[in-house]
Design a protein around this nucleic acid. Structure first.
Lengths: 229, 229
DNA sequence: ATATTTTGTGTTGTTTTCACGCAATAAAGG
DNA sequence: CCTTTATTGCGTGAAAACAACACAAAATAT
């Protein structure tokens, strides 16, 4: 066995949020230190020798931005020898989602001079190879939401149906037929309709509230259901 | 920035092969050194400080088994703190496929005392967390082959249609309707029918040979084709 | 009260998938 | 050579999924 390899390991987080007015956003931090000091980058940092990768992501996110993650999965590992100017660093990227409700609450801290949500349509220049990582994450989000109900993770716990509609419509980049969409989604049997109306915002008839039933979804998946929108 | 983290990075390879008589197989090596000396394990090893992860996989596979990989993609990164008894080691697992034709040629060498193909239905006990890694790879193979033509990578360059049929039937674990399957696959327009017949094995009418056209496939994907079996 | 905005629902024609049967081809065996 | 046997290769009808489409009901704003 080798004595030392001298490769360092970091985690990076691509965290998505959503809001009907703003659209889909991603969480970025402004770097406080070199290299790329002052530039925007994905939140993340070095893995401690005794913590799991997932724990490292959660810790870094809390330290740097204060957000609470609702969904987390591994995205990809980036290991090109020259991706960091300092030394060989391998980064395990994680893909995260926060609920709509608390997607604004941010508090920059630690390594971060600032933390902000950026619309995925208007992104600043990023440090390292984070542009590439982020692009992969966005692709994953887009392709994943048509065969897995991660769309619901972006919304609030209770939401009017139109929110779901808008989310899918914006993220897929095309208009969707309200009636067919509703038929399909309701047919999956993973949404519960509540006896509660959405608070009205301006004019128009307020819609009923719905909520995603994750337990039912997991059950159906285990039985071999094939989800697709 | 930290001085040293003392986490090591390895790559592991899950390489699949296929043969009509034997079925789907995976390449394993018998470890020559501790820990887990004498046990079967996934081929792999430490990443050199200056080589890319993909290069490390290719090098280790050549060193330990001599196989030539036809398709390679990253699977997942395993980083539980206790997954190696020696020290903290993070492993980036890669998923590979060799063509049916040369799936037997093996030469154990380097760190490996032996190298062999095992049917995925009959696996030995494995070192480290390789059981878990392999399970994930098999799941990925199964789920991936229905929306990406990686099945073709397992077959020979030229193959009779029935081979493809058998492959899908065994891997999906259910019988498939030959007529509908043929219609669907041919409808994708990524298979070329050759003016050549398969060598007859035993009785029965020999089938025509086909070959996968990867260029056409890539073209179609770029145009937004949605492949599904 | 009237205008405006947003929700909620049903039908029909079209396309895709699935299930299924039979004739044609070629090798093997007598 | 001729029969037997195994395997290929094609077509059709029934069922299911999908896409297109319009209007009444509920609530707010003026």
């Amino acid at each position: 066995m080798k004595t030392t390899q001298n490769i360092d390991v970091t985690v990076d987080a691509i965290v998505f949020g959503y809001n009907k007015e703003i659209g889909v956003t991603v969480l970025l931090i402004k770097r406080k230190n070199d290299p790329f000091k002052g530039q925007w980058a994905l939140p993340g940092g070095f893995v401690e020798p005794t913590e799991s990768l997932e724990l490292a992501v959660a810790r870094e996110l809390k330290e740097e931005t204060g957000v609470k993650i609702n969904y987390l999965e591994q995205l990809y590992t980036f290991g090109q020898p020259d991706r960091d100017p300092r030394k060989r660093i391998i980064s395990v990227a994680y893909f995260g989602i926060v609920k709509s409700s608390q997607f604004k609450k941010l508090k920059a801290a630690d390594d971060a001079e600032d933390a902000e949500w950026f619309k995925i349509k208007h992104l600043p220049a990023l440090a390292f190879d984070h542009q590439k990582i982020l692009k992969m994450a966005i692709d994953r989000l887009r392709s994943k939401m048509i065969y897995q109900p991660i769309g619901f993770e972006l919304l609030d716990k209770k939401f009017p149906f139109s929110d779901l509609e808008h989310l899918y419509s914006t993220l897929l980049g095309r208009p969707i037929d309200r009636r067919n969409f509703r038929k399909k989604v309701m047919g999956l049997g993973i949404l519960e309709e509540l006896d509660e109306k959405a608070p009205s915002l301006g004019a128009g008839r307020p819609g009923n509230l719905f909520q995603f039933n994750k337990a039912t979804y997991n059950q159906l998946v285990k039985e071999g259901m094939h989800f697709e929108i």
